[in-house]
Structure formats: C-alpha cells, structure tokens
Computed example of a mutant assay.
Amino acid sequence: MSARLVARSVTVQPDAAVSPILEDAGLELRSGEVHALVGPNGAGKSTLFGVLSGDIVPASGSVELDGRPVGAIPAKDLARQRAVLLQQNDVAFAFTVEQVVRMGRAPWARTPREDADDDLVDAALAATDMSALRHRAVRSLSGGERARVALARVLAQDVGILLLDEPTAALDLRHQEDVLRIARERADAGATVALVLHDLNAALAYGDRATLLSRGRVVATGTPAEVVTAERIGEVYGQAVDILTHPVTGIGVVVPRR
C-alpha cells in the first residue's frame, strides 16, 4: 500500500513555557488501510489529526500529502483530496440535514464532478441512515443524529483520504458499527482512512494498523494486535486489562480487570 499522508518528527508547542502537546510524533497513512489512533484523553490524538489535515502548523517537523508539503497545498485543492470530521460539529443556523450534507460538495463547485452532487448526497444520507430526516433542521436533532449528519457531509465530499476524529463517540451500538463498516468499505475501495478511537476493541476489529499515543508521544505503531497489548495498555492507561480471543472471529477483545 502506498503512503499518502506522512508526518515526520512533528512537534506542536503553542507556548514555550508549557510542555509540547505533541513531541517528535510520526505517522504514515496508507491507501487501502484503516489506521486507528488510540490513547488516553489528552494524549495528542486530535492535535495530530489537525496537523495531518493542515489545520495546525507544527513548531517543527513535516507533513506531506503525496510527497508535497501540506502547507503548500491551496485550501481548495486540499479539500479535494482529504475530508475531516471534527469532534465538534455545531450548526449555528437553521440548515436542514440535506443542506449541511450538500456543503460537502462545495469543493467541487463549477467542476465536472458537480454533476454527481445529487447522487452523492443521496448516497451519503442513505449510508448514515439519515434519508428519512433529510428535511429536518439539524438543530432539532439529537446529538447522535447530528454526528451522523456530520459524517454524511464528509462522505458526500467524495475524496480519497478520510480523517475521522471520534466518529463513534455520540452513537448507539448499531450506528457505531455502521460507521466502522463504512470506514472499512472505503478503505477496501482504496481510500486512506484514519480514525481517532477510544474503543480499543473497535481498533482491533476494524483496523489494519494502529498508533498508540501517550502524553504527546507515539508509543507504538503496527498492526492493532501488535500495538494493543495488555502490558502496554496497562502502562499507558493505568488500567489493568486482559486480552482474550473472541471464540468466533479469533480477534483479540480487551477486558478491564475488575
């Protein structure tokens, strides 16, 4: 698989008087893979996503998209290559679900790909189970429904790199699995997909690769089974766990010791 987004020795330190949020962090996101970023609260996962997306400029280090510095790529061109789902997706005005999802098509305005707008919006609404609510005002929806609208907007953007920051956080069990299946399907179709996850079992079940962060540093990168070990999780999270083997899938399952 070819590397599409590569961060090397990235440090983010907004204030010299405080410790870096990220320090000497590296990450490689490849086409055709789901890459899970895991780690405790405050580990620097969302900051690393911000650097990868081009929204945060690091104090040192480099980030390249297809070999080109992210900072040198015009915003419109960047939006035609990568889509970003943030943790917070507030809608200030009385937009409908469909209007918000259609905003994902903005990078393709006045291009030949604009002709696919309606089909891609419909497909994104269907994939996120929001078709029946397409005419509802987003502000009238539940938190989980709003999260699905935000994901649908990202899917409608129809690009080859998806950066999804905690996409399952506000969702019920069924819709969590829907999101993870969508991520898996996009990667299987050749996309580069990265997910910030708190659910270690989701990382084990759906990830091709995983990166564990702690206190702004990369602790380990590799296959999920290589990264998510009982010893390492105990050290990083301060919680003892056992990793059992699922009797049907054979995939590891993280169980806290209680």
Rank of each mutant, 00 (worst) to 15 (best):
E98F: 08
E98L: 08
E98C: 09
E98T: 14
Q99V: 09
Q99D: 15
Q99L: 11
V100R: 00
V100G: 03
V100Q: 02
V101Y: 06
V101C: 10
R102S: 15
R102N: 12
R102F: 05
R102W: 07
R102P: 05
M103D: 03
M103W: 08
M103P: 04
M103V: 05
M103E: 07
M103S: 02
G104D: 08
R105A: 11
A106T: 13
P107L: 06
W108E: 05
W108G: 04
W108S: 06
W108P: 07
W108N: 05
R110N: 14
R110E: 11
R110K: 14
R110I: 06
T111S: 15
P112M: 11
P112S: 08
R113K: 15
E114Q: 15
E114K: 14
E114H: 12
D115K: 15
D115C: 02
D115T: 13
A116V: 05
A116L: 14
A116S: 11
A116T: 10
D117H: 12
D118S: 03
D118M: 01
D118A: 14
D119N: 00
D119P: 00
D119L: 02
L120T: 04
D122I: 01
D122C: 03
D122Q: 07
A123D: 11
A123S: 13
L125E: 04
L125V: 10
L125C: 04
A126F: 01
A126M: 04
A127P: 03
A127E: 05
A127W: 02
A127Y: 00
T128V: 07
D129I: 03
D129K: 06
D129N: 13
D129Y: 01
M130A: 12
M130I: 11
S131L: 11
A132F: 12
A132D: 15
R134G: 07
R134W: 05
H135T: 15
H135C: 08
H135R: 14
R136H: 15
R136T: 08
A137W: 09
A137I: 10
A137L: 14
R139N: 15
R139K: 14
S140D: 15
S140Q: 13
S140G: 15
L141T: 09
S142G: 13
G143A: 13
G143N: 13
G144P: 12
G144L: 08
G144E: 06
R146I: 08
R146W: 01
R146A: 05
R146S: 02
R146G: 09
R146Q: 15
A147G: 13
A147L: 04
A147S: 15
R148Y: 02
R148L: 13
V149W: 02
V149C: 04
A150N: 03
A150I: 00
L151V: 08
A152K: 02
A152V: 07
R153M: 11
R153C: 02
R153I: 02
V154K: 00
V154R: 00
L155R: 03
L155N: 01
L155G: 03
L155K: 03
